[in-house]
């Protein structure tokens, strides 16, 4: 009997929680909610963990369907002052092992990017994309596409919701924050699933308001309560007919996996020293093992 009462109590409690959550969602889907409010909620729901380690495969598909595969480790770390550190370290193919993209986003939004090429020499080369948000290292992604956008830098204009295959979406157009007119250049359009507030589709526009790239997120995994992460991110370059697919095979949220020292040149030089010219090298795939997600 006691057991029965306890289970009934648990059921009622769950019902109350669900109802409150439902009320939250119903209120949220109101047509009066602004684009900025939706984005704040998206950010809050799926905000970045401070310490993330991921093992990724990058599959680059050219216009003829030919594929190149790269393997990389991705480290990201958010400091208490808001600085975001990002390191993408390539492991495969063997020729590019040790190539690294190191990025720091200061609290004021300024981003510095450096590239390390072990075969070139022990020197960090500053990578300046001159604000074009261009792709990095031959992929169709820009760093911003992977680290997420800073809400304060942008203005979000809500468009009519859409329903595709019985899934409802918020549609938000993204502009630079300093621009206030809708005649200004639209940067991208987010399609946010209303049931989980996850941006599953983004259209990136060029200057002529044409879709230049389409970024879509697949294989969503719940990593913490309602927090989701996509295990596959596909970027389609409409102009060049390329595709870049990032597949995450392993993900760990742990401070231990992302120590501060790895975001330094010294760590890179020590672990991936300058490679002297050789003709033959081992081309074994270091990640040739069963993929797991933690």
């Amino acid at each position: 009997m006691k057991l029965l009462l306890r289970s009934q109590l648990f059921f009622l409690l769950s019902l109350l929680i669900s109802l409150s959550h439902l009320q939250e969602c119903i209120g949220f889907t109101s047509s009066e909610t602004t684009g900025a409010e939706i984005m704040e909620e998206v950010d809050k729901r799926h905000k970045q963990f401070p310490y993330i380690y991921e093992e990724q495969s990058m599959i680059l598909v050219d216009r003829y369907g030919e594929q190149d595969t790269r393997k990389a480790r991705r480290y990201s770390r958010v400091e208490e002052d808001g600085t975001v550190r990002f390191l993408l370290l390539f492991d495969y193919p063997q020729e590019v092992k040790g190539v690294a993209l190191l990025a720091n986003r200061e609290p004021d939004g300024k981003t510095n990017k450096y590239i390390y090429l072990p075969a070139y020499g022990e020197q960090l080369l500053e990578s300046a994309d001159e604000g074009n948000g261009d792709n990095f290292l031959g992929t169709d992604f820009s760093v911003e596409n992977l680290t997420g956008e800073i809400l304060s830098d942008h203005r979000y204009v809500r468009r009519d919701d859409r329903e595709v295959e019985k899934v409802k979406y918020f549609v938000l157009d993204v502009y630079k924050a300093k621009n206030t007119s809708t005649k200004d250049r639209i940067l991208r359009r987010h399609f946010i699933q209303q049931d989980n507030l996850y941006i599953t589709l983004t259209h990136h526009f060029d200057k002529h308001r044409r879709i230049a790239r389409i970024q879509s997120h697949h294989d969503l995994k719940e990593v913490d309560h309602d927090m989701l992460r996509a295990n596959m991110i596909l970027m389609e370059n409409m102009k060049n007919q390329h595709q870049s697919l990032i597949k995450t095979s392993r993900r760990i949220f742990s401070h231990d996996y992302v120590p501060l020292e790895i975001f330094t040149a010294e760590w890179l030089y020590e672990n991936y020293p300058h490679i002297e010219p050789t003709e033959e090298i081992d081309t074994d795939d270091p990640f040739d093992k069963k993929e797991t997600t933690e």
């Binding site: 193919p93 020729e95 590019v96 190539v99 090429l117 072990p118 075969a119 070139y120 490679i275 002297e276 010219p277 050789t278 003709e279 090298i281």
Partner: peptide, 8 residues
């Protein structure tokens, strides 16, 4: 001068 540098 090296294959790695070419690839990189």
């Amino acid at each position: 001068e090296s294959r790695q540098l070419v690839a990189q």
